[in-house]
Design a protein around this nucleic acid. Structure first.
Length: 254
DNA sequence: AAGCACTTCAACCGCCAAAGC
DNA sequence: TGCTTTGGCGGTTGAAGTGCT
């Protein structure tokens, strides 16, 4: 008799996650946490293995994941830490808030390893940046900030949000500090949330961003719910209002 | 426009270690 | 102390996207 499988293989779904599955998982974890990954899928009504749920949450849905390209600084950090720790991706990820071990591993395998190999093989005399390098430098210019939200945000929205506010720590705001930040049209999904910011409606629409892509933004819209719930942001017709939230935000959002 | 090659990255697999009994 | 269960990790895969001819 071999090792006990991590889950009952029969009836367990594999492959890419649908938005319905994502919202079920998010909703469940927001309400109950994730003390027991094995029991979670059954309790959350997901036909997934516990490991798969954990992976999806840790690598994709968690609110504190920073998405987007790695900055040059981050790449240098990875290279340094890889030298120090070897392929201990979780150790490396622990030194890089907002980045997952999986993401770091992917960056290492797809970019950094090759780049290091190339630079070791050839001593390049010219300092002119490669297209790759240029993109990284551009990225640094766009995202350089030391604030909390840059470390934990996961979309351009959060960067923009940060530029305006400087931080998302609730206690930093007074009611008179009202700031409205326009939110992306594709994020107007508040009707799906009930009073507690749980997903009341099982029918989650496809979320398309301006460039026509979908799915990858799924982390953003539910994260806004988190921001509102946890950080006391108020959604208005034009964006988010920080500060006094005496009026009903969701009524004014439609 | 079509076909092919290459790249990216989300997700899976199998192993290991820690915790619980 | 040994067995089982569970969570976590690193390696790998393959579908989807992108670029090139």
């Amino acid at each position: 008799m071999g090792r006990t499988p991590c889950c009952d293989k029969a009836g367990v779904k594999k492959g890419p996650w649908s938005q319905q599955e994502d919202s079920k998982l998010i909703s469940f974890i927001l309400q109950h946490g994730h003390d027991n990954w094995r029991a979670l899928p059954r309790l959350a009504g997901l036909a997934r293995c516990g490991k798969s749920c954990r992976l999806r949450w840790v690598n994709y849905l968690r609110p504190d994941i920073k998405r987007g390209n790695f900055s040059l600084e981050e790449e240098e950090t990875i290279i340094k830490l890889q030298e120090q720790f070897g392929n201990k991706w979780s150790k490396i990820a622990a030194q890089m808030p907002g980045r997952t071990d999986n993401e770091i591993k992917n960056v290492w395998n797809t970019h950094l390893k090759k780049r290091l190999k190339a630079s070791n093989a050839t001593v390049v005399a010219s300092p002119s940046p490669s297209p790759d390098q240029k993109m990284i430098n551009d990225n640094v210019d766009l995202s350089s900030s030391s604030s909390t939200v840059d470390q934990i945000g996961n979309s351009d929205f959060h960067r923009d949000f940060n530029r305006t506010t400087g931080t998302v720590e609730k206690q930093d705001y007074r009611p008179e500090d009202l700031v409205e930040i326009p939110f992306e049209p594709n994020l107007e999904l508040w009707d799906m949330l009930d009073a507690d910011c749980n997903f009341a409606d099982a029918e989650v629409p496809v979320i398309a961003s301006e460039d026509g892509s979908s799915n990858r933004d799924v982390g953003s819209w539910w994260w806004l719910a988190y921001l509102e719930n946890e950080l006391g942001l108020e959604v208005t017709a034009n964006g988010y209002r920080i500060g006094d939230s005496a009026s009903s935000p969701k009524n004014s959002s439609s």
